[in-house]
């Protein structure tokens, strides 16, 4: 790799993206509203990127993101409220609880080869089941919000007065999740998962254990959702069974699909574009008619899904290709350079 290759359009785009992401709090710090919005966008980007592992790579249409998120939130919240255990520990335990439940559910589901629609429905049902259970479990959940104490140190209880620390925390996690995505994609697990998506029986004959590959993907996804759930509880300052939200889970899956299944950055990109757009719509239309912004948002989702069924990532790829050609010609590179990318 020479210096010239370092400055290809893809790396420049990544650099610009990271630069903007780091600079946003400095620009908007005056407005807490914008910071919360950007933190929410990052939250969706993380969840959609995590979904890419189970949905995009393992091909299981999981609709249970909020189930794992809620478990992480309740674990973290309950540990802090009852035993004053810091969320820095709680969020990882939350991730482990989410993973444990995912294994419990996933082991028989993948063992019995429950797929596509039926997997989607059973995962969607899981969210509703957990919501009912936590609604009835008064010690931990119940119909009223359980507030997290602020305590003596905001760093210990992870309860800040402004959203900037949360924003950077989410940004770090997003980068980690994207790197995990990349690592899985080019590992043995990633190749097994992609092959399973093509022809499960053929791959099993070649000695890949489909159940354990899918379980690994599900475990990583559930763990990420659980950890993020812990931070989610800290941001909002309470835990409530409404965290088990079927609509949110479906939206995560749709962002993964609309982003471009299998593209590492696709779901995050879709989340950044669509969720920012949704929030802007909410800010401009929400005051006039409740629900209008969601209607417009839904129409755009449908149009993107119908007319760009492979997602928006391929569009970006085409743009990058064009830029690359232009770039190479600009720096008087040879045609062979284009082909090598």
């Amino acid at each position: 790799m020479n210096v010239k290759n370092l400055f290809n359009p893809r790396n420049i785009l990544i650099l610009i993206g990271v630069g903007i992401a780091l600079a946003i709090p400095l620009i908007f710090n005056a407005s807490q509203y914008v910071m919360l919005l950007m933190t929410t966008v990052l939250l969706y980007a993380i969840l959609a990127s995590a979904w890419n592992i189970i949905g995009g790579m393992a091909g299981q249409l999981d609709l249970a993101a909020a189930a794992y998120l809620g478990l992480g939130a309740f674990t973290t919240g309950t540990l802090l409220i009852r035993w004053n255990i810091t969320p820095w520990v709680g969020m990882f335990l939350g991730g482990l609880v989410a993973t444990a439940l995912a294994m419990l559910i996933g082991f028989p589901l993948f063992g019995f080869k429950v797929k596509e629609l039926w997997y989607a429905l059973s995962s969607s049902a899981l969210v509703v089941v957990l919501q009912s259970l936590f609604m009835m479990w008064n010690e931990v959940g119940g119909p009223t919000e359980k507030y997290l104490p602020i305590g003596t140190s905001p760093w210990y209880s992870l309860r800040f007065n402004d959203y900037m620390p949360y924003y950077y925390l989410m940004l770090i996690i997003l980068v980690v999740v994207l790197l995990v995505n990349r690592w899985i994609r080019y590992s043995k697990l990633g190749y097994s998962l992609l092959a399973l998506g093509e022809d499960e029986d053929a791959v099993e004959v070649l000695g890949v254990n489909s159940q354990s590959s899918k379980l690994k993907a599900l475990a990583i996804y559930a763990f990420i959702c659980g950890v993020v759930g812990g931070i989610f509880a800290s941001i909002y300052g309470y835990v409530h069974p409404a965290f088990f939200d079927t609509s949110m889970s479906m939206e995560i899956a749709i962002l993964g699909i609309v982003g471009g299944m299998g593209f590492i950055y696709g779901p995050a990109l879709a989340a950044i574009v669509m969720v920012s757009f949704r929030e802007v719509l909410r800010a401009s239309l929400g005051s006039q008619l409740a629900g209008l912004y969601l209607a417009v948002y839904a129409i755009i989702l449908i149009v993107v899904a119908l007319y760009q069924p492979r997602g928006i990532a391929p569009l970006v790829e085409r743009g990058i290709k064009k830029a690359q050609t232009y770039f190479v010609e600009l720096t008087r590179g040879r045609r062979a350079d284009i082909k090598s990318h």
Partner: peptide
């Protein structure tokens, strides 16, 4: 998956239309 995305989009649309 496109069918899933489109019908879930329809679901959000119908729900918000009812709300409006």
């Amino acid at each position: 998956v496109v069918q899933l995305a489109v019908t879930v989009g329809l679901q959000i649309l119908m729900r918000s239309a009812a709300l409006i």
